[in-house]
C-alpha cells in the first residue's frame, strides 16, 4: 500500500535576504522514484538540505512519515551530499566504511561491499586520490547501504561519465528497498527519464509542476525533456 512518505506544507526559505523557496506544497508516496528538476540555482539543493534537516529556520512544515522531528528525519533519510565531504583527504574508503558502520545502525556493510564492487570503487584508495567520479560512486554505495524509507540524491551523476551513468541507474533499480522512495535531482535528463515515476519541476523558487512521467507521455505526447524545456 502506498503510504505518504514526505509532505511539505507552505514551505518557504530565505537566506541573506534572498527568497530561495516560496510556498512549496508537495506530497510524495512510498515506493516512488522522483526526479527533482530545475535549473542551477532554482533551489533543488536547498530543498534537499531542508528535508534532511541540514538547513534550518524554514517556514512551513516538513513531515517525513508524518513527523517533523529533526532527529527522526535524519534517521529515516539517507542523503548523498553530506556523506564524504567531512572526511580528510587522507581517509581511505575502507575507513569511511568503518565510520558508517559505527554511526548508522541501519548500515548494511555487506550491501556496501557488493555495491562498491559493482561500481568499481577501490576502498584502499584515499579520498584525496579519488576522481570526482569515484567519489560520486563511493557516495552512491554509501547512500544505498543504509536501510531507510527515503533516499535523497543530490546530483548523483555529477562527474560521472556516460558509460557509468547506466551503472548508477542500475544501482537504483537493483538496490532500492522495495517500499523506499528515491528523490534525485539532475539537470540532464538523458537515460534517466525511464527511471522516473514522477517529476517535480522547481522554477523561480516555486514548484511549478508535479506529475507522473507516464502522464507527460500519454497526455502530451512529449518526452520528459521536451516537457521540462517547455516549462523553462
Amino acid at each position: 500500500m502506498a503510504e505518504k512518505i514526505l509532505e511539505l506544507k507552505n514551505l518557504s526559505y530565505k537566506t541573506g535576504g534572498k527568497q530561495i523557496l516560496q510556498g512549496l506544497d508537495l506530497q510524495i508516496d512510498s515506493n516512488q522514484i522522483v526526479g527533482l528538476l530545475g535549473a542551477n540555482g532554482a533551489g533543488k539543493t536547498t530543498l534537499m538540505r531542508i528535508i534532511t534537516g541540514v538547513a534550518k529556520n524554514y517556514k512551513g512544515t516538513v513531515d517525513v512519515l508524518g513527523q517533523e522531528n529533526e532527529t527522526f528525519r535524519k534517521e529515516n533519510i539517507s542523503y548523498n551530499a553530506q556523506l564524504v565531504p567531512d572526511f580528510s583527504l587522507g581517509t581511505k574508503g575502507s575507513e569511511v566504511l568503518r565510520f558508517y558502520t559505527s554511526v548508522y545502525p541501519d548500515f548494511n556493510s555487506d550491501k556496501f561491499l557488493t555495491i562498491s564492487e559493482y561500481l568499481d570503487v577501490k576502498l584502499d584508495n584515499k579520498l584525496g586520490k579519488m576522481s570526482k567520479g569515484e567519489i560520486a560512486r563511493l557516495s552512491m554505495a554509501l547512500v544505498f547501504s543504509r536501510t531507510v524509507p527515503l533516499y535523497l540524491l543530490d546530483e548523483p551523476f555529477e562527474g560521472i561519465d556516460s558509460m557509468t551513468r547506466k551503472r548508477i541507474t542500475d544501482t537504483i533499480i537493483k538496490w532500492k528497498e522495495p517500499d523506499a522512495t528515491v528523490i534525485f535531482s539532475d539537470h540532464y535528463l538523458n537515460d534517466i527519464s525511464n527511471l522516473l515515476d514522477d517529476i517535480v519541476i522547481i522554477k523561480d523558487s516555486e514548484i511549478i509542476e508535479h506529475l507522473p512521467a507516464e502522464q507527460i507521455r500519454s497526455q502530451y505526447g512529449q518526452t520528459i525533456e521536451e516537457f521540462y524545456e517547455s516549462k523553462y
Binding site: 516512488q32 522514484i33 541507474t169 542500475d170 533499480i173 525511464n194 527511471l195 522516473l196 515515476d197 507516464e214
Partner: peptide, 13 residues
Amino acid sequence: RDLALDLSVNTNT
C-alpha cells in the same frame, strides 16, 4: 526486478 534491469526502467512501470 530483472525485467526492470534488462530494460533499464522503473519496477513500478
